[in-house]
Design a protein around this nucleic acid. Structure first.
Length: 659
DNA sequence: GCACCTCGAGTTCA
DNA sequence: CTCGAGGTGC
């Protein structure tokens, strides 16, 4: 009996861990083994079986088929609206009858609707929506969902409705498991939730990490929907915390805007916003059309993943010679902008996703900004698609591409390759490098092709070509002079900018700064040997070698001399002064955007106060600053339990008063 | 030799 | 933002 009690406690703990932790402290096989052992003990001593035994909770036995359930009150679905105009039309229809009324806005969870019936406070039946009138009995699976109470805080007879969903985290884990076990993956959390809830064996559903939000009390005695929700909370149901009472349609639109932005940072997927009239009497007066209530509607987000045709795969050459495959797409609108290109990263990415020329692919915006290819729609294939093939020769200069040992990417190793040269020049003038305004990518490309700029030092010789430049189409005295002035100013940049701008392999903005701490002039750096360099923290043998090799190259040495003669500063000057130590040794990560401030400005502010910034969230991060439209970093921060500051909090600390 | 962290490089549209 | 690679520390 002791062993049995031990097993029950262990298994309950594991089942809980399974959908709350990333790494449960037990393997699946071990879990199954313990479960088998428990079943053996219980079957030989049925009199010992505890009410909270996991064999009880999950039904223990596999039911043979779903039982049909007729809903006492039919489960309705909602009408859809897709834009502001349609939302206002919806509001106009209601306002005609009720000029003053409130709305309740809720997130529309992307899952499956369920109906829960309680008798005397005890859950006795759960059913799917089905066709709205008749659904299927899924009580055995719903009982495995931790957040759905088996017993309410009051002994009432009540029917409550809500949404069962699969959190993003559970979904990822499930797909990883499916993949490792050679099973087919689920396309989205909704499908996975649906598949799990329809398992006949509740043992499977119990491990899928489902969760639920409740949002509807069909026969509510309360005056308003909002009060019903509060009552549901009191009974022990999980009501989504992001509900909002809105006084008018403008507040509804604000709510929609807010969540359109914050959507991706939620730990579950939502596909829209539900708008309901708050007053229950008004709801009754408004009534229903044939199918849907007139007192509620669902605003649907524009689809995040859009299907389009991948017409071609082209290859670009980066500054380092790295070859990147790019998808050429039939232009589609995705979240407000028209997308015609998307990166395909590298050969492995294309092969792993089996992306072929001619395929239909789903496009989405990573972090709501950068377009990316999600997956191929296999059902749209017709056999004319051509499999991905990595090119063998540089698309620009034709030299043979090399795949470096143990690396994923291919490289064009011709240092005279025009693509590489142009990219290198663009990098030199870019904002974080020498920061020369008025000499952007397009112009740099043109200047290279016209022959004005062939190498870095030519940038500082442009002033002798002033008259010629003014004659060029699209240029005038003003633009040329301001450009030349910006070039002049850039000569005074500190060494760290120059080092970064030169484009030494593996030396980015940060590493350039680190080097400047030890070598304050370019000459001292040039005379350093690789052992000396690799003694620096953060600089290893590979970077040391890259640096030494760069300064061995005749052409590079010549260019540096030219730059020196043209008056470019070669020493470290911009030691930032630390004003105070408010943030001493605190590590910050910034994500999203902030009003009136760029991320770089915030970064400078933090560094001035002794803080450190980095680009990725880890256990060592102290604070994550979250602005508008944050990306996955916010999720990571929540996951690791790291302090989060929003814009308000940041401005408060900075002493900026919001207008 | 591995796990974890950090960095660099390339990336889209308006 | 995403990826992969380089660096460090156990």
């Amino acid at each position: 009996m002791d062993r049995m009690n031990e097993l029950i406690d262990l298994l309950n703990k594991y089942a809980y861990e399974y959908y709350t932790l990333d790494k449960p402290s037990v393997e699946d096989q071990e879990y199954d083994r313990l479960m088998q052992e428990l079943i053996r003990i219980e079957s030989s001593h049925p009199e010992w079986v505890r009410a909270d035994s996991p064999t009880r909770k999950i039904g223990g036995e596999v039911i043979s088929e779903f039982v049909k359930v007729t809903h006492d009150v039919p489960m309705f679905s909602l009408g859809n609206v897709f834009n502001e105009d349609e939302i206002r039309e919806f509001d106009d229809r209601i306002s005609k009858e009720f000029p003053n009324h409130e709305y309740v806005c809720e997130l529309k969870i992307d899952g499956l609707a369920v109906s829960l019936e309680y008798k005397n406070g005890i859950l006795f039946r759960a059913a799917t929506r089905g066709d709205g009138t008749v659904g299927e009995d899924i009580t055995h699976n719903v009982k495995t969902i931790k957040s759905i109470p088996h017993k309410l805080t009051e002994n009432v007879d009540i029917t409550i409705r809500g949404e069962v969903y699969m959190p993003k985290k559970s979904f990822e884990r499930l797909n990883k498991y499916q993949e490792e076990h050679g099973e087919s993956k689920f396309q989205n959390p909704r499908n996975a939730a649906a598949g799990s809830i329809r398992q006949l064996d509740s043992g499977i559903a119990s491990k899928r990490g489902l969760d639920a939000f409740l949002y509807h009390y069909p026969l509510t005695p309360f005056k308003t929907h909002y009060e019903s929700l509060m009552y549901m909370k009191k009974l022990g149901f999980v009501v989504n915390p992001n509900i909002k009472l809105c006084k008018n349609i403008d507040e509804v639109l604000e709510y929609i805007d807010e969540w359109t932005q914050k959507r991706s940072s939620l730990p579950y997927e939502i596909d829209g916003i539900v708008i309901k009239v708050n007053d229950i009497d008004m709801q009754r007066e408004l009534g229903y059309t044939a199918k849907v209530p007139k007192w509620a509607t669902a605003y649907k987000f524009p689809p995040e993943h859009v299907l389009t045709r991948l017409t071609d795969i082209i290859f670009t050459v980066g500054r380092t010679g790295q070859i990147t495959p790019n998808a050429v797409l039939e232009p589609v609108r995705v979240m407000g902008s028209t997308i015609s290109r998307a990166t395909l990263h590298n050969q492995d990415f294309c092969i792993q996703k089996d992306i072929r020329k001619g395929d239909y692919v789903y496009i989405y915006k990573a972090g709501d900004v950068i377009p990316a290819v999600d997956r191929v729609e296999l059902s749209r294939r017709n056999g004319t698609e051509t499999p991905f093939e990595m090119i063998k020769y540089c698309p620009m200069c034709g030299s043979k591409l090399k795949k470096r040992e143990g690396m994923v990417d291919f490289f064009c190793e011709n240092i005279h390759c025009p693509a590489r040269k142009i990219e290198g020049l663009i990098h030199f003038v870019s904002r974080n490098a020498m920061n020369i305004d008025g000499l952007g990518e397009r112009i740099m490309e043109d200047f290279y092709n016209y022959g004005f700029i062939k190498k870095i030092s030519d940038i500082y010789r442009l002033n002798s070509k002033r008259e010629e430049l003014i004659e060029l189409e699209g240029f005038g005295i003003k633009s040329v002079d301001s450009m030349l002035e910006n070039i002049e100013t850039s000569k005074h940049n500190s060494l760290d900018r120059l080092l970064f701008a030169l484009g030494i392999n593996g030396i980015g903005a940060k590493t350039a700064k680190i080097l400047c701490k030890y070598y304050t002039s370019i000459d001292s750096l040039m005379s350093a040997n690789s052992t000396e360099l690799s003694n620096i923290h953060d600089i290893g043998p590979i970077l040391s070698e890259n640096i030494v090799n760069y300064f061995k190259d005749e052409n590079n040495l010549k260019e540096i001399e030219e730059l020196r003669n043209l008056g470019v500063n070669m020493s470290f000057t911009s030691e930032e002064t630390i004003e105070d130590e408010t943030f001493k040794d605190k590590r910050f990560v910034i994500t999203g955007s902030f009003e009136n401030l760029t991320r770089d400005e915030i970064k400078a502010y933090i560094e001035k106060r002794g803080g450190l910034t980095s680009d990725s969230v880890s256990k060592k991060t102290d604070v994550v600053l979250v602005g508008e439209a944050p990306g996955s970093k916010r999720d990571k921060a929540l996951e690791l339990g790291i302090t989060i500051w929003n814009q308000e909090k940041l401005f408060e600390i900075m002493g900026i008063v919001e207008k």
